[in-house]
């Protein structure tokens, strides 16, 4: 049975693409057959985060328009043989694809893959409708900020209306030093407000920027974010993994400077 997961957030820039890349890579590293689909038509990015931008020949819109077969548009990942990327079109706009066409294409992909991960564009318009059309599970990404949480709440409402079986929350870019000072909402504050199950907390980690610079997902490496993504993947597979206590791994310097911030 394959599972179709949409990664969505409402607000832009909270980490949907990074999450898609890392969850997809993580699941593939655990031996699952995974396809990542970039549904952000006109603003494609997942190829760059994956470091596959030079291998694109055909894209999602070409498949929908019948210019090529599904197989021709799929790009094999550099590192994992069971991971593929379906890039989005950079020159078309969102109206080039309809939700019905997406559902049809996903049906085809289900025959070959265990996990189909859709990277959703920001907003709640057509691009969002296309991305969620064929999905039965959602990962809602938010940061611990008022604007991102408000948009996430709106997205959750829309997903609930579409009767999604499973909606899980990922809190991205949490800064433990700020939480400690009372200057950032805690993970449990966010969960309280949004009231959906939490599947992962990803700390704010500069390694994410470094990984994106290099076009290499960081899931499973020793970094804080890499470990957090690894745990998310395990939980996606249904395993019970305790949440990492990053309190203990906060850098020495944060601790030293933390002394001066105590109220």
């Amino acid at each position: 049975m394959s599972e179709v997961i949409v990664v969505t957030s409402g607000k832009g820039g909270v980490g949907k693409t990074t999450t898609s890349a890392n969850v997809g890579t993580g699941l593939a590293a655990m031996g699952r057959k995974v396809v990542l689909i970039d549904t952000d038509i006109g603003l494609r990015n997942l190829d760059v985060v994956m470091g596959l931008e030079n291998r694109i020949v055909y894209n999602l819109v070409d498949v929908i328009e019948g210019k090529c077969r599904v197989k021709q548009a799929l790009i094999k990942d550099k590192r994992h043989p069971s991971l593929y990327l379906m890039p989005s079109a950079q020159t078309k706009d969102k109206s080039a694809v309809s939700p019905q066409q997406m559902v049809k294409m996903i049906q085809q992909l289900k025959e070959q893959f265990d996990y189909i991960i859709l990277d959703c564009p920001a907003g709640i318009e057509q691009g969002f409708q296309n991305a969620i059309a064929g999905a039965d599970r959602a990962l809602v990404v938010t940061t611990p900020e008022v604007s991102a949480i408000r948009d996430a709440d709106r997205i959750i409402g829309l997903l609930e209306a579409k009767e999604f079986k499973k909606i899980d929350l990922i809190i991205n870019r949490l800064r433990y030093d700020m939480v400690k000072r009372g200057e950032m909402m805690t993970a449990s504050d966010v969960v309280d407000i949004l009231a959906i199950p939490l599947i992962g907390i990803v700390p704010d980690d500069e390694n994410v920027v470094i990984a994106t610079n290099q076009g290499e997902p960081l899931v499973g490496n020793g970094t804080m974010a890499g470990r957090a993504y690894q745990n998310i993947c395990e939980r996606v597979l249904g395993k019970e993994i305790p949440f990492i206590d990053f309190e203990k791994t906060i850098s020495f310097w944060t601790r030293v400077t933390g002394i001066f911030h105590k109220n």
């Binding site: 009372g182 909402m185 504050d189 407000i193």
Partner: peptide, 27 residues
């Protein structure tokens, strides 16, 4: 730092309170 001593609510609490009210009218 000086301002922080005199402030009663942390920005975390302010954010939480604002969101609670905001989301209810949104919902």
């Amino acid at each position: 730092e000086f301002a922080r001593i005199f402030r009663k609510k942390s920005s975390r609490e302010i954010a939480k309170d604002r969101l609670k009210i905001l989301l209810i009218s949104d919902r």
